[in-house]
Simulated assay, not measured.
Amino acid sequence: MGNLDVFIEYQIHLFIDSIFLPFLLVLGVAGNILIIIVLLKPRNRDSSTARLLLALAISDILALVISVPYKWLDTTYSINIREFSELGCKIHLFISMHVGQVFTFSILAISVERFIFLMFPYKAKTICSLRNINLVILVIQPVSLIIGGHLFYGVRLSETGKCALIQELYKVGIWRAWQILNVVGALFVPFVIMAVTNTSIIVKLISGNCTWCKCLKTKEKQKGLAVKKRSSQITVTLMIVILTFLICVIPLGIYYIMFSGQQWQHEETHRDAVILLFWSVSSGLFHTNNAVNFLIYFLSGSKFRKELKYLCCNKQTKTTQAFIEERTPSAQTVESLVKYSK
């Protein structure tokens, strides 16, 4: 791609893939590990929301670990791990697609869960029980596998050693149809559902209509309003997560619709530099979404900040107590010293 070096779009593409994405990898993996530690605390294990956020954090880590090193090696050192073998080509491309779809459906599940808790408070605990949430998380896996399972047949190493689609007919027909189906099923349908549920949630929060608070006795209203406030804080935090997802993921869907299949056919022209830049920006935004959830929880979630502070301070307190106990003489030692001094 020697001729591409003269284009500013190509230079920006190199910066994103070789510097910005590795930064996101470190930030995202560290942040999501902290999220997992907090969510696995005993006080959070019985929460349906925590269970969904745990699945989201795991999918975030997988998306970063699987995709970012691949792009970094390819851009920086021209090492494409998909080109080592045909099996590697099929497996890596399929897993990359699968993890991205699981991430999308996890965000969708969180949006629907918040909608149910605000709109149907009496039935929410039954509908969103841990058993049902676990079932949803399990169902997401085969749905994603079905959507992308054809990649085991549809791609292989070409005569030039590139991980590419098998034939021209497949590129134009089945591949194109699958890309559109993938974007519609894994992006725009979730987008419509999230738009409807989040609009309803916003209206509910603004109106301040609390159905279950109306049924409480006077003495219980204060406690009920406190519960409502905590629920609203959680909902606002999760809505920020969902809106960030929509902003960061939609450009990737647009890329797949506009340039599907063209990423394999560069001829070192300005158009190719623009396509590469569009790809880097859209995938960079996608991985930014994988990395920033920790910052969103920390900045907008007071409960998460308290849990994180408790986690850090608790460890520090235990370390300090162990240090003091190690250097403080026991009662028997003090008693023997007193006797000896006499």
Rank of each mutant, 00 (worst) to 15 (best):
169 L>I: 07
122 Y>L: 11
116 I>C: 01
176 R>S: 12
154 G>D: 01
101 Q>S: 13
150 H>M: 10
111 S>C: 12
111 S>G: 04
164 A>C: 06
149 G>C: 08
139 V>F: 11
122 Y>N: 09
131 R>W: 13
122 Y>D: 13
156 R>L: 02
152 F>I: 05
180 I>M: 12
162 K>F: 08
178 W>G: 00
135 L>W: 14
124 A>T: 05
134 N>F: 06
173 G>Q: 10
179 Q>E: 15
116 I>A: 02
122 Y>P: 00
179 Q>L: 10
158 S>F: 01
114 R>K: 15
181 L>D: 12
171 K>F: 08
166 I>A: 04
164 A>Q: 12
109 A>Q: 07
162 K>Q: 09
139 V>R: 01
107 I>P: 01
123 K>T: 10
173 G>S: 07
163 C>N: 07
143 V>T: 12
147 I>A: 11
138 L>T: 12
114 R>T: 09
159 E>V: 07
167 Q>S: 14
102 V>Y: 03
175 W>H: 08
166 I>V: 15
107 I>C: 09
161 G>A: 05
176 R>T: 12
157 L>K: 02
115 F>T: 03
166 I>S: 03
163 C>A: 11
179 Q>K: 00
114 R>Y: 11
100 G>L: 10
174 I>W: 12
136 V>F: 13
127 I>L: 07
161 G>Q: 09
149 G>I: 12
148 G>V: 13
136 V>C: 13
161 G>K: 06
124 A>E: 11
179 Q>I: 09
112 V>I: 15
163 C>T: 06
170 Y>T: 05
169 L>H: 13
151 L>W: 13
163 C>I: 05
116 I>V: 15
177 A>E: 04
142 P>E: 06
179 Q>S: 14
118 L>G: 01
165 L>M: 11
158 S>R: 01
129 S>Q: 10
156 R>G: 01
139 V>N: 01
160 T>C: 05
103 F>N: 06
181 L>V: 11
142 P>A: 05
127 I>C: 02
181 L>N: 12
128 C>D: 05
131 R>V: 04
114 R>E: 09
142 P>K: 08
180 I>C: 09
128 C>M: 14
121 P>I: 05
159 E>L: 06
169 L>A: 13
101 Q>W: 11
132 N>P: 03
155 V>N: 02
104 T>P: 01
128 C>V: 09
177 A>P: 00
131 R>A: 08
142 P>Y: 11
154 G>Q: 02
127 I>K: 03
116 I>M: 06
121 P>M: 04
136 V>Q: 04
139 V>C: 11
134 N>R: 15
100 G>W: 08
131 R>D: 05
119 M>K: 08
133 I>K: 00
135 L>D: 04
